[in-house]
């Protein structure tokens, strides 16, 4: 076989070919496509929310409170006369903000701790991994509740609390990867020419650990939304009048029987977006699984 006139071994698969195959797998799985579309739509809504939302998400209008869904108010209005459709649209920005920051913080912190732990091994590894075990000894939401309540409930503290809970998973992943990489020959070569530990870690070990962490991050995005919404629902997350979906579901609890729309639509938004992320995540996992790939 020749590529660009250069002879290559038959077993060599060009990257383009591989990418094409990935695209083929993506198109073949209908559920993955649905997931992709939902996630893209979610991103779009988050971007254009201020332009398409018909009403202000926070301003109260008591003359129009508790109206059922209609042409003026697609999802009805809540007990303060706020348009739920607009609030749901704005809520997507808050959800996106939470996902991005939590992924960044917990992914970053977890990867760093994992890489240090795996690279140095020994006593450093032992201490860092026992700390990880201690965080893993709590059910996630319970620990997030504790952090959120102690720091005072707010959007920022929700993000910090969830990040403090979720870094452990990435630490373990990055550690395993770092342990594998550190014994490879090119690291030995680096050491032989006198590179410092920090140089080896940041330039040669860390880049190798990022891709499994990234995959895991995409798989966990649905869970992040659910945890944040759970905190919001319990009153330990974003505070009113912030249009956070979980808090909105909680708002409608007292009106459930006669004004079902107050709780239903924000909850539906959570379910659809999480579904999108889960379908996409499943698809990505299947595409990366070598047994299913060929």
């Amino acid at each position: 076989m020749r590529i660009l006139g250069i002879p290559v071994p038959e077993s060599y698969k060009p990257m383009i070919e591989d990418l094409k195959h990935t695209m083929y797998l993506w198109r073949k799985s209908r559920l993955t496509m649905v997931g992709t579309i939902i996630v893209l739509a979610f991103l779009m809504v988050a971007i254009v929310a201020p332009f398409v939302a018909p009403y202000d998400p926070i301003e109260q209008n008591l003359k129009e409170k508790l109206l059922p869904p209609s042409r003026e108010h697609l999802f009805g209005t809540d007990q303060f006369g706020r348009d739920i459709f607009s609030r749901v649209l704005y809520g997507s920005r808050i959800a996106l903000w939470i996902i991005l920051l939590v992924s960044l913080i917990s992914g970053g912190v977890g990867t760093m701790i994992g890489v240090f732990s795996g690279y140095f091994g020994g006593i450093v590894d032992e201490i860092l991994m026992r700390i990880t075990d201690m965080f893993l000894a709590f059910p996630g939401l319970v620990l997030a509740m504790a952090f959120a309540a102690a720091m005072g409930p707010s959007l920022t503290n929700t993000i910090i609390a969830i990040s403090l809970v979720y870094w452990t998973r990435y630490a373990r992943l990055a550690r395993a990867e770092a342990m594998r990489v550190k014994n490879m020959e090119y690291i030995e070569a680096e050491k032989a020419i006198g590179a410092s530990h920090l140089r080896i870690i940041f330039l040669h070990v860390l880049p190798m650990c990022i891709s499994p962490v990234l995959v895991q991050l995409t798989l966990r995005m649905g869970t992040i939304i659910l945890t944040a919404a759970g905190l919001g629902f319990l009153g330990l997350g974003a505070q009113p009048p912030t249009p956070e979906w979980g808090a909105m579901v909680s708002d409608g609890r007292n009106y459930l029987v006669d004004q079902w729309w107050i709780s239903t639509f924000p909850g539906l938004a959570i379910a659809i977006v999480v579904l999108g992320f889960n379908l996409l995540g499943d698809g990505i996992r299947d595409m990366l699984d070598p047994r299913l790939r060929r």
């Binding site: 649905g222 659910l226 609890r253 959570i270 379910a271 889960n278 379908l279």
Partner: peptide, 18 residues
Amino acid sequence: SILGVSMPVFWTGLLLLL
């Protein structure tokens, strides 16, 4: 299954109650 891991527990509960 995928609905089970996607729907928020508190929302499913409220809907079933309703």
